[in-house]
Computed example of a mutant assay.
Amino acid sequence: MTAEQTAQAPALDPSNGSGRRALLYAILTVLLVVGVLLSAGLGQLAIGPAQVIGSVLRAIGIDNAWAPDELLLEQTLWQIRFPRVMISLLVGALLAVAGAVMQAIFGNPLAEPGVVGVSSGAALGAAGAITLGLTVFGPWSTAVFAFAGGLTATLIVYSSARAKGRTEVVTLLLTGIAVNAFAGAGLALFMFAGNTASREQIIFWQLGSMNGSRWNEVLIVAVVGAIATAAAIRLGPRYDLLALGDRTAAHLGVKVERLRIFSDVIVALLTGVAVAFVGIIAFVGLVIPHLIRMILGPSHRTLIVASLLGGAVLMVYADLLARTVVPAADLPIGLLTSLVGGPFFFWLIRRNRRRAGGWA
C-alpha cells in the first residue's frame, strides 16, 4: 500500500469522531443559514433578516408580522435574490461533491474538476451548444452538451493518468493542463465564430457568475444534482475500499473499473449541470473536500455529505462578496474562488511533495 493510500484508508472504528462530525455539521448548517439570510438581504436594496424570514414563512402559508408589505421588496427577494442564493449554494455543493468523488477514484487529493480540465470541458460543450444553436434537447440542450463535454474530459484524464494500477500525479496535472488549453482554444474559436450574444455568454462562462439566475435553472440543477449526489453517497463505502488499493478492493468484491467509470459519469453530471448555468468556478472541489478530510478523516460517505455542506457555505459567502465588495458592481465569482484556491493548491502540492519525498 502506498503512503497516499495509507493516508486515505478508512477508519477502523465507525464511532470514532462522531462528536466531531456532529459539531462540524452543526457549524456548517448555522453558517449556511446565516449566509443565506445575509445574501438575500444585502445589496443595493437592503432587506432585514426578519423580513427575509417573514417572506419565506408567508410563502409557505404561515402568516406573520415580519413579512415585508412593499411589493418591490417581495419581487426583489423572489425574482432576483432567492434564485441567485439557491443556485450559488447548489453549485458550490455539487462542485465540492464532484471534487470528493474525483479524489476518491484517482486516489489523490490534487484531483478537482477545474484543475484537471473537467469544468473547461463542460464549458466547451455548453459554448458549442449556444454558438451552433443546438436545441435538440429543448431547454435542457445546454446542460446536456455541458455534461457531454465534462464526461469526455473526465474520460480523457482518467485514461491518461492511470498506469499500472495507480494514478500518476504528474500525468494527472499535465493532462489537466492539456485539456484546459484545448478547451480554452475551443472557447476562443466559438467566440470568433459566434455572434455578439454568444460571445457574451462564452465570456460569462470563462469568468463565472451567478447573476441572472432563474428558478427554472435552480430546478434543473437541484434535480440532476440530487440524483448524482445520492449516487455518490451510496458509493461511499466502496470508495473506502478503493482507498486500500485496486487489488485489495477487488478481493473485497468491488468491481473497480466499473466503479470508476460510473463515478466518472457522476462527476460529469455534477460538473456539467453546474457549469452550464454559472460558468467555470475553479478550486471549490479541491479546497473543500481536502479541508473536510483533514477535520473528519477519510470516510467517504461522511466526507461527501460534509463537503456538500461546506461547498454550499463557501459559494454562498463568495457570491455575497462578489455582489457587495465593490459598490454597484458584480465581480466574477470565479475570480474570488481562484484567489483563494490558487495559493491553497500551491500549498497542497508542496505539502504532498514533502511527504512523498518527490513526485509520485
Rank of each mutant, 00 (worst) to 15 (best):
A104C: 13
G35H: 09
P10E: 12
I60Y: 02
P113V: 02
S39F: 11
D13G: 11
A65T: 15
L89M: 15
A9T: 11
L23V: 12
I87F: 08
I53A: 10
V85C: 07
A111Q: 08
V85W: 00
L45D: 00
L38Y: 11
Q75F: 08
D63M: 05
N108V: 02
T29I: 15
Q51W: 01
M86I: 05
A11Y: 03
V30A: 15
L24Y: 09
V52P: 04
W66Y: 03
T6D: 14
G41N: 00
S18E: 13
P68A: 03
R84W: 02
A59W: 06
L71T: 14
S18P: 07
D13Y: 09
L45S: 02
G61D: 13
R58I: 05
S39H: 14
L37Y: 00
L45Q: 07
R84Q: 14
D13N: 15
Q79Y: 10
A22Q: 13
A67H: 00
G107W: 02
G35E: 07
V97A: 05
L32V: 03
L71M: 13
V36S: 05
G92K: 03
G17N: 10
L95H: 04
L110I: 09
P68F: 01
V52D: 04
L32W: 03
N64K: 03
L45M: 09
V91F: 09
A59Y: 04
P113M: 06
V30T: 15
G41A: 01
R58H: 12
S39T: 13
P68C: 06
L57I: 07
V91M: 07
V97W: 01
E74W: 11
